[in-house]
């Protein structure tokens, strides 16, 4: 049974309907399986990240999920702070840095724009995958396997029912991971992890 660490970062969860529903789904999975939720803004409201704790959590888990809204085509500041402090040279990367070798990491993001806006011809001019290049490369430098993101598009217009549908997909994704049913090679070739999930 593979273990999953969800690094969740939202500075104003009270204002995000979608993420509240998604987190609700995570919590229901976490209570019965080997999923750990690490709510970064709740844990470190003053940005003083406990590096020891974070590194231990990374060591303890097989899959790492960075779950956050897609602020300015990237993540909220906390995720950056977390990367800066936790992924130390000599531990996560560098000649001696082999702590994370082979672990799988990917982003779960929520964004207001629809998928067609993330296109060369669209408003945002680049695809989500292109915007995520820094995460991809960070994972690569840390000798981790970077997987495609699970993306919730068009959150501004989602109906309650659609949000719950995304939440169900997220839940079944987590179940795929914990029950070792994800074909990593197949997954790597997808655009989004969403493609692997029905419903």
């Amino acid at each position: 049974m593979a273990s999953v660490l969800i690094l969740f970062a939202h500075p104003a969860l009270e204002k995000s309907r979608t993420n509240r529903i998604l987190m609700g789904a995570c919590q229901s999975v976490a209570s019965v399986t080997s999923v750990t939720i690490n709510d970064l803004y709740q844990e470190y409201p003053d940005f003083d990240i406990d590096v020891d704790r974070e590194q231990q959590l990374l060591l303890d888990h097989e899959y790492i999920i960075l779950h956050h809204p897609f602020y300015w085509y990237s993540s909220p500041a906390m995720v950056k702070q977390w990367e800066d402090l936790v992924l130390e040279h000599g531990w996560a990367y560098g000649r001696e840095g082999n702590a994370l070798v082979g672990k799988k990491i990917f982003n779960v993001i929520t964004t207001g724009g629809p998928q067609r806006a993330y296109d060369e011809a669209g408003l945002n001019r680049f695809t989500v995958r292109q915007f995520l290049a820094p995460f991809d490369q960070t994972a690569h430098l840390c000798k981790m396997i970077y997987l495609p993101p699970f993306v919730v598009h068009g959150t501004h217009r989602l109906t309650e029912e659609e949000m719950h549908q995304y939440a169900r997909q997220y839940k079944s994704l987590l179940t795929l991971l914990t029950t070792d049913q994800l074909d990593v090679e197949d997954a790597r070739n997808r655009q989004y992890l969403n493609e692997l999930l029905v419903d």
Partner: peptide, 13 residues
């Protein structure tokens, strides 16, 4: 704890 924080931002190593 303090050292770690410095480490992450410290390009020394």
């Amino acid at each position: 704890w303090l050292k770690d924080v410095e480490d992450g931002w410290d390009p020394e190593s």
